[in-house]
Nucleic acid binder design. Structure first.
Lengths: 205, 205, 205, 205
DNA sequence: GATGAATGAGACTTCATTCAT
DNA sequence: GATGAATGAAGTCTCATTCAT
């Protein structure tokens, strides 16, 4: 209709819009939860509601993109921990960061975790896979340096992260201490190495 | 208080309806989360929407009643653990039950705990207080029998429960194992008593 | 079921209930307008909602009864004015009382007048008739004593009352002055133009 | 202000819809009072309910817009009376028009004026102010030409209008006559009693 | 007769999604 | 491609009226 032949801005602004919507959505969901209306996100991003739907055909798709984006950042940060620091401590630092910093104050993430109508596997399968891959590497490194129980699995580590995040969301002022306690349960027990629970006399709590 | 011998049937049906609504609401919230519409709950309970509002003037009030009811059951069960069994193990059994059985598949509880627009203190302050009281007793008993670290606080225990529930909701098949690991972090460390971490050589995970 | 043979209170409490509901309804409508729920009126009157409906089968019927009751009081007061005082001034005093005292702060009356879904003729035809009869007598007396224009009709007087009440409801602080001005328009004109009666010296209506 | 030559059609239909809703709302409120449901207004205007709420986020906002729109028309008409005709008679003509024509059969206006849950100052403060300003001018002109008592205030004039409108709503067939009588009370008294201005000869207000 | 619980239509309002401009 | 207006299905809550106790 209006292809006037002049050099239109074309793709550039589209990409810019997508980024703006994604960032705005992330911050909005983090701060106020998943119930922030699309219209409101569009307004805050400075675009029309239709533009949001052009890039993300559904609100769920937007959730997925936000999670995907977030997980990419997290995976990058996690790999840096592994590459730049002490591999033996990378796992615990990562869990601590996930719980206390990255996941802190992220209501949207908490609601996603609480399963509020959201299935993260459906929404962002690729990023999820990469995330699990990173966890595997972190775990392997920790086991090798003897800072993690040999029988710990990747899925258990993920559940631990979820647990610590929940604690952070719910009771921020004790989350640090609680995370420390939980992490204590992941290291090899004093006596046994691969410990199939060499509990001596006293039953644990 | 009540005129004994008074044959007034009073509102037998009203009580019945209230129970029916409460039970239906509990199951609906547990299975599908807090967003189940009141109209739907009314339909499932076999009453008109107005009846729900007669008993619970607000959806929040219904949330509160459900939580209150649930916490009462939980507190009763917890006290039984304390009275009938080994006090030293009551805390760990209670946490395990909260995470793996009572909280299992209870989306509504998870969302309430995640703070999804709900403030449990406002909605069911009494039950919350009783719950914290029970936790205090359980914790004291555990400390006395040496199965819990002496520096553990009630609020930390609550956060631990929240954490374990989150793990259960998110990854049910590893929740049992994860809970065991987490509980391991709560017992006194092998050497020290109030242990400011008498870790020997290896840093924990 | 419970006819135990003892002397039941029977009618007495029914009459009492009717009075209580009527009085409560009057005060509620006057203070808060016609939208006060029946349940609320029942509660304030100390009876069940069913009792209200036994006496007044419809909310409109209750409106009618309130108006009827109110008009009876007013008619009695008006007749006293006529019998006990100066008949020449009874009309103006009555209008003034209707506007500034009896009708003051009666939101329900104002809404009835504004026609908020209410037809006073349908709801309380008898009382309305008696009210108009009283107005006729007041007007006749005023004409006879030369304090009202000879061409004034009863329906015009009623409209004047409605007008003054509206002023009172809307702008209470000038209602007295405005009523005085309006009443001034009702006395015979000085010159006798448009007027069968040539006012002599006296006070205006 | 507007980039002239810009061929953007913009939201021609939006403006059209807004007008349609406003007009429909005005007529509905006028004919049936303020209790007409928004859904019904939307239906009559041929739009969805959501469209009404896009333009007027609240029912009160719609009330306000209707009143504002109405008062603007009225103020314009009143100013024309002042500019184009005999300033001495403009006030009485305006009052007459307000009561008998503009306010006639306008239940919504009557209810608004009766204060039926509506606060005109909150809803349409600007229009109210302009309206009072116009009344002031009309009154000043009337006083200057000796057709209104010198001690009349603007608020009294407004109350008079309210009064006449109430009469019109309640008893349309005598409203004309009653308005005439009421207006008679506003002109300077023949003798000059209670009056700063000694009316000369002329026509009453 | 009285009670108050139940009903259910309907009010206002929100918001994911579509579509004309 | 972008815009934001329009849609309409829900959702929460109210209340006149009916009816079992």
């Amino acid at each position: 209709m209006q292809l006037t032949g002049n050099p239109r801005p074309l793709r550039a602004d589209a990409i810019h819009n997508r980024e703006a919507v994604l960032e705005t959505a992330y911050q909005s969901f983090a701060a106020e939860g998943l119930s922030v209306p699309i219209d409101e996100i569009a307004r805050r991003a400075g675009v029309g509601a239709g533009t949001v739907y052009r890039h993300f055909p559904t609100k769920n798709a937007l959730f997925g993109a936000v999670i995907d984006h977030r997980l990419k950042q997290i995976v990058t940060a996690g790999r840096n921990l592994l590459d730049d620091g002490d591999p033996g401590h990378a796992l615990s630092e990562f869990i601590r960061a996930m719980a206390l910093h990255w996941g802190a104050r992220d209501l949207g993430l908490a609601q996603t975790i609480a399963g509020d109508g959201i299935d993260i596997y459906t929404l962002a399968p690729e990023a999820e896979a990469r995330f699990m891959g990173l966890l595997g590497e972190l775990l392997a490194a920790a086991k090798q340096s003897g800072t993690a129980r040999a029988d710990l699995t990747v899925r258990e580590v993920k559940a631990i992260i979820v647990a610590c995040q929940a604690a952070q969301i719910h009771t921020p002022d004790v989350a640090d201490r609680v995370t420390t306690l939980i992490l204590a349960g992941l290291r090899p027990s004093a006596s046994g190495q691969n410990d199939e629970t060499t509990a001596t006399s006293d039953t644990p709590v």
